[in-house]
Design a protein around this nucleic acid. Structure first.
Lengths: 226, 226
DNA sequence: TTGGTTAGTGTACCAAATACACATTTTGTT
DNA sequence: AACAAAATGTGTATTTGGTACACTAACCAA
């Protein structure tokens, strides 16, 4: 951390970081990935994964790299959320943070600790610990964005495996919306959108009737923004 | 421009700028405010108003200040659009640009030139000149955002004077959506939203029936984001 | 074979959006 | 004074989308 201050400019430059709000559903609860900070400031406190932008690195690449370095997680689709730049948001120096949000399947990720982060863990969105910096505000904004995108995007499928049943899909919606949905209307609505199709297979688990297995018609569209 | 390079850091820092896409409707056409660059790079080329963030300045304050300095325009409501950070987007150094978009009333603004900008002028969105940097991409993103916010926000009233007729309002919608709307359905729809009310006054112009004058019920809500 | 558990299905009702045409009020002209 | 020109203002029927609502089907275990 004690470099030689070789990087000089005519005018003062802020630092730029990226931070990632990664959501998943665990135990029927919307949860967020946090890391425990290994360094000052806010050492020991929980925070969003993220870190400083390298000078030749794309913003999104930075977000993915920091996520990988701090939690071991890769392969999630990131979407830019907002850029926070309050002059007092970091006690060290002026920092502009470009934030991203992402969704992941619940069982595909077991976050691990690393050098920059003492540990990484999932927290239910309604049981967040005190967060470093303005990260609570960032999480809340991400949550609002997630909810508002539910109705007109296909991001929800990022929280599901490639093959799923309608009951699983409905469960995700119910958890995110925090309300119960009617099964018949839900099925009618989701099928009318023509974004999923039957695989022809059935689940073979549990002491009950097997469920049809569905998949997304065009998986590449799952990432479409806006 | 030849300062003493007194601002030094352990690690390289990108520069941060803000850019503003300001829309208005002029001569029945959606138009964008551009400035002609007075300095290198892209000297003489048209670009979005914007400039470097000062070290203790809020991002939005920076955007407003640059808009004022380069075009003389004040008092518009800015909304953050997106942050662009491609490592090659500026030939001078690594620059992160936090972009904003805004709407204004057509007749309230006569942009003027200033030191940083040779001149400022409105351009119809479909007749843009070649733009500096990645500014064309920024404009297109802003346009998409504007259109998608039309249906669920009240931003459209930022393009109108405080008092207006339903015909004026419908005309703005028709220009933005680029399609003709049914007068009866438009009125029914807009009145059902309970965001505008009659003032009780009538226009007194033209050789035709006077029109009722309306206003926004709660002007402070016109700026609401989402 | 019976009970438990989850999957799967249709119709009636209500609300919102759409399609569509003519009378009203003013100004200016004859 | 009557009329033409121009833009304002208004209602109904239809279609579409969303909502409310209850029972049968398939499998497993006892």
């Amino acid at each position: 951390m004690a470099a030689k201050q070789r990087h000089c400019y005519d005018y003062p430059h802020p630092a730029v970081t990226t931070d990632v709000v990664l959501f998943t559903i665990r135990q029927q609860t919307l949860s967020v990935l946090l890391i425990q900070r290994a360094n000052h400031p806010f050492q020991g406190m929980w925070a969003l994964p993220g870190g400083f932008l390298e000078i030749d690195e794309d913003l999104e690449t930075c977000a993915k790299r920091e996520l990988m370095e701090e939690t071991g997680i890769t392969g999630v689709y990131l979407e830019q959320l907002y850029t926070f730049g309050n002059p007092q948001r970091d006690p060290r120096e002026r920092i502009i943070s470009v934030t991203y949000f992402a969704l992941s399947q619940s069982d595909s990720l077991s976050p691990k600790a690393s050098s920059d982060a003492a540990q990484a863990a999932w927290f239910p969105i309604n049981e967040l610990p005190a967060l470093a910096f303005d990260h609570r505000e960032i999480v809340q904004l991400a949550r609002r964005r997630l909810l508002s995108k539910l109705s007109y995007s296909t991001i929800v499928f990022q929280m599901l495996p490639p093959q799923f049943t309608l009951s699983q899909l409905q469960s995700v919606y119910e958890i995110l919306l925090n309300e119960n949905l009617d099964k018949r209307n839900f099925r009618k609505g989701i099928l009318a959108r023509n974004i999923i199709e039957e695989t022809g297979d059935y689940t073979r688990s549990g002491n009950h009737r097997p469920a049809k297995i569905y998949r997304v018609v065009n998986p590449s569209q799952v990432e479409i923004i806006k």
